[in-house]
Design a protein around this nucleic acid. Sequence first.
DNA 1: GAGTAGACTTAGGAATATAAAC
DNA 2: GTTTATATTCCTAAGTCTACTC
Length: 917
Amino acid sequence: MASSSEDDVPLVKSKANGVKSSDTIPKSVDQAMDKENPTNGHVEAGISVRHGPVEEMDVDEDANGPIMANGVTNGKRKARSSVTNGKSYKEASSSEEDDKPLSKRRKMAAPPKPVLDSDSELSDEPLIKAKAKMPPKVTAAQVGEDSDSDQPITEKLAKKKEKIEKAAEKTAKAIRAEEASSAKKKKQKRVDSDDEDDVPLAKKTTKKIAKPKKEESDDDIPLRRKAPAVSAKKDKTKVKAEAVSPAKKAKGKVKAEKTEDDLAAEAEEEEFRWWENMDKNDNSIKWNTLEHNGVVFPPEYVPLPKNVKLVYDGVPISLHPDAEEIAGFYGAMLNSEVNVSNPTFNENFFFDFKAMLDNTGHGKDKDGNKIKIKEFAKCDFKPIFEYYDAERQKKKALPAVEKKALKAEKDAAEAPYTHCMWDGRKQKVGNFRVEPPGLFRGRGEHPKTGKVKQRVRPEQITLNIGKDAKVPTPPEGHKWKEIKHDQTATWLATWQENINGAFKYVMLAASSDIKGQSDYQKFEKARELKKHIDRIRKDYNRELQSKVMADRQRATAVYLIDKFALRAGNEKGEDEADTVGCCSLKYEHVTLRPPNTVIFDFLGKDSIRFYDEVEVDTQVFKNLKIFKKEPKGPGDEIFDRLTTSALNKHLSSYMTGLTAKVFRTYNASWTMSNLLKDMKSTGTIPEKVKDYNDANRQVAILCNHKRTVAAGHAGQIEKMQEKINGMLYQQWRLKQMMIDVDSKIKKKKGADFFELPEDLDEEWVKKHQEYLVEEHRQKIRKKFEKENEKLVAEGQKEMKDKELNDRLKDADELEKKFKKENKSKKVAAEGKSPSIEKLEASIEKIQQRIETSKIQLEDKDQNKEVALGTSKINYIDPRLTVVFSKKFDVPIERFFSKTLREKFDWAIKSVDEDWEF
DNA sequence: GAGTAGACTTAGGAATATAAAC
DNA sequence: GTTTATATTCCTAAGTCTACTC
């Protein structure tokens, strides 16, 4: 990265080709910042937006691709693997310069700006030296770093890999052999759930680290001590044998008269409880035997009926089926405002559509005359939309029986693909369907949104399957791209999509053992962080004052990640939406308001806005000021001397596997843990659920999990409020009736008790009464009609209108009653032999309903733009929820849906109410 | 050391199923 | 029974991070 020589040619490109900070921070700068008022990049005078160096960048325009709106080129930004179908997309072909080393790419004409005072004693210290001060690393990632060898790392790793693979295969064979010979014995042993039997085969034969059964006690052993990463890596032969022939465990216990489903469910029930014997380190071999049936392809394109056509310039056009299919993609989503009103979406779609038209000879009118489609604006997709919409409606309107039959048919066709056999255990596959072709719906301002996502053919799909398993037959006339037997991978199939070159994978469902294990490890890692967090915080607090710029930036970034749960913020490519995380924050995303308030305003993952005004440590405030210091301006990165790799490398020196992401899990779970711990949830189940959701919401807010407010939300809230008001009125009337029963009650209870509730006034009452009367009338009418229908159906005479009018008198009576009440300010007691006790009981009943409704309303409103699901599914240790459920006696079903209960089966079965995060 | 391919997790919104209200 | 609201599941884009390559 940085070197002292770079300082000689200042303002060389940093990781995002922006302005780069100097290596070190002299005292004078620190002191100056102490005196100065902190700068606000957006508004404060004196900070000009464009400085010399930034202007210099204009030079880059031809050489390094387009200059972004903020004046910064993105020449070096990361892009996903390139795709070789450059035909349709108008990508400015990435510059040849990209291949050149940074130093050669461009030279800044401007002389080095004296950003800092003449360098302090540290100024010339090469970064690499500064880095040497970092704590030693012991992660698996650094396996090849034995400095004592001259052998290239890659070579070493390749050899190691070869060795490991051989050993793994040998072990796998041994296991298979042993499995076969000892299957019977094992079955018997399983029944007795012998501890020893749960020990993975491989572990029995290799040197095993003694491990207590419960993971809680296990926690006390630091991961590193348990099995150093290096040896863990070397020891790939210690196959994950928890997974070895576990299905056998389920057998031998079944009771007689059970249905097949029961048996299957029970077999599933008796799964091996992998979480009781989890090797937290060994991630190398994921399976020994793997059988599956491949993937389900989407149906081939069915051309539109002859009468449904794209209309171009007022003329219905016949298209080649390939072009028509693309027109159909667009036509079918005309109701998707977000997309079809996005110019980029339309532009990209039309570019690809036209390319296909060029290939297929455009269209023909009814007389067979060729029509060239040139302008998007002249295309009318409405007939196509209407056709597809009608199809949708038709499908929706199908009788329930037919719907069911169709579903059953589909389920039957897909049945072979829904599960696989993973080390002999039946496991659910997640996304066994190949993604259908369509238009790419990139989020936010994705430059490729709207492009055509092509149909995936078997020739593009690589399968991963056991060596001994039967390879699924590809669709007729096709073949698979490749068959792999990669035991270190968990995917069953993979292909590369044509838009971004992203790899797509078919993997197991969240409820599978392998995903469960991974989830478990994730939360255990977060719990492990508890033991290191104090030291980490102490260190970064100290390093906030480091003279070495890189270190100070790193410390500041860790502070932000730890405190505000920011994402790491990898570099992004120019072909992606411009979103950021911590390390990629830019000048304009952070505003400083003295004395120590920081305003974050940026688009994060999925282009979701992150806006927060927070108070920070004064040193952090000062640092951010320094990192934003001239000549930096909009477009420049704040942490220009920091990359996520460097950050994670540093973090991993504290704890194996510690990365920025772990902080989010840790902080989310830790927050939830504390909230639940302090909670004295009493009352009804809905109240307890609300308490839980409140805590969940706080975590979701911490993680900035948002959703768009549903259309009609305001109306729904209003409706709920009206309902509550109605109940309040009803309650008030009952109170008035108490006075009617016992006039002394007013004195006894105090006048306040009988006041009209605050939210209601006379005007509202009148309107509500009108509503009630009208409602009553409607009810009478409906009942009358229904009864008449019944009479007709029974062959009897209909009742006459007179009967209806007689019945409607009841509503008139109600109207009169209300009027009288309004006039006399008195409410006569209703019902048979009314008493104070009876009325009080009714009031109390309504009170409870009011409370419940109020809770629901509050819950709904507070949740309107917060998505609770993401944190519940990914960040909050599910065991915390289980503890809450047990401690407060709320069924777990109230928190976890069926799929979540399957996903978190390990959590539900592994803790009691004393468990702590 | 930088760049990136590849594998995996995280994420919001659409589609669908279910429950509640009418 | 039908409509509407809510919950759940599905879908796949968009992140993170490791390991490999140059």
